[in-house]
Design a protein around this nucleic acid. Structure first.
Lengths: 109, 109
DNA sequence: ACTATTAATCGTAATATTGCGATATAATAA
DNA sequence: TTATTATATCGCAATATTACGATTAATAGT
C-alpha cells in the first residue's frame, strides 16, 4: 500500500495530523522560529541562515503555507512570510485539549 | 537525497521534530486517544476498534514507543500499552513554549 | 506435549518525503 | 528594453512511510 487510510478516521484526527506533519521537521521548526523572531521572513535570508538550498526552503515554506501555518505577502520582488494567527491559535487549542486528556496519576498499567 | 540534514539543527529542534512525527498520523492519534480513554490498550483490541490490520497497529505502537510516548507492560499473552507520563509532560512543555512564542498582535506583514 | 491466543517481525508493493541543481516566472531598476 | 533580484517550479535520486499477508515467538490452558 503506502497510503494513509484517512477515510477511517475523524476529520478532527486528520486535520490535527496534517498540521502536526507540517511541524514535524527540524527545518520547518527552525523556519518558524526564525519567522517568529522576525529576524528573517524572506526565503533567501532563511536559506542563508539555515544553510539549506533556496529550492529546499521554498518547498518547506510551501508545505507550511499549505498546512495553513503561515501566510505570504508579496513585497516588491520578495515575499514576506509570517504566522497565520487564526490557524496557529486553532492548532494550539486542539493540541492542548489533546495533550491534556492524559491523567498523569491514573495509568492503566 | 531524501535524508534529513539533522546535523545542521539543534538537538532541541530535532527532538521535538521526532516527537511530533510520531504524533503526526491519524492512526497514531486515534491509538493514543483510545489508550488514554483506557477502553483499549491491547494491540488486538485496537486493531478491531480502528479497523486496521494487527501488523499495522503493532508497527504504529512500535513507533510511538520508540518516540517515547507510550510504554508497554507484558500481561500474560498480551501487552498493555499506556502513556509514558514523563515524556508526555516534556512534549507538552516543549510544544507549549514553542507555540506561545507567537505574539498574535505583532505580525511582521 | 499440544493447542489456542496474542503480539512482533519479515518481506513486499505502493506511495511520500527530502534535498538540490537547473530552469522558469515575476517584479523592480537602469 | 534589458538586466537584476527573488521566488517558485521541475525533474531527479535517495530514502522513508504506510499497510498488509504470512510467518515466527512466546505464553496460557488442557
Amino acid at each position: 500500500m503506502g497510503l494513509t487510510k484517512t477515510e477511517i478516521f475523524t476529520d478532527e484526527q486528520n486535520r490535527l495530523a496534517v498540521m502536526l506533519k507540517a511541524l514535524a521537521h527540524p527545518a520547518r521548526i527552525a523556519i518558524l522560529q526564525q519567522i517568529i523572531n522576525a529576524n528573517a521572513c524572506i526565503c533567501g535570508d532563511l536559506s542563508i541562515e539555515l544553510g539549506l538550498a533556496q529550492a529546499t526552503i521554498s518547498q518547506h515554506l510551501k508545505e507550511l503555507k499549505t498546512a495553513g501555518l503561515i501566510q505570504g505577502t508579496i513585497e516588491g520582488v520578495s515575499v514576506c512570510y509570517c504566522i497565520e494567527p487564526k490557524n496557529w491559535e486553532m492548532l494550539k487549542q486542539q493540541l492542548n485539549s489533546f495533550l491534556n486528556l492524559v491523567d498523569v496519576k491514573a495509568n492503566c498499567c
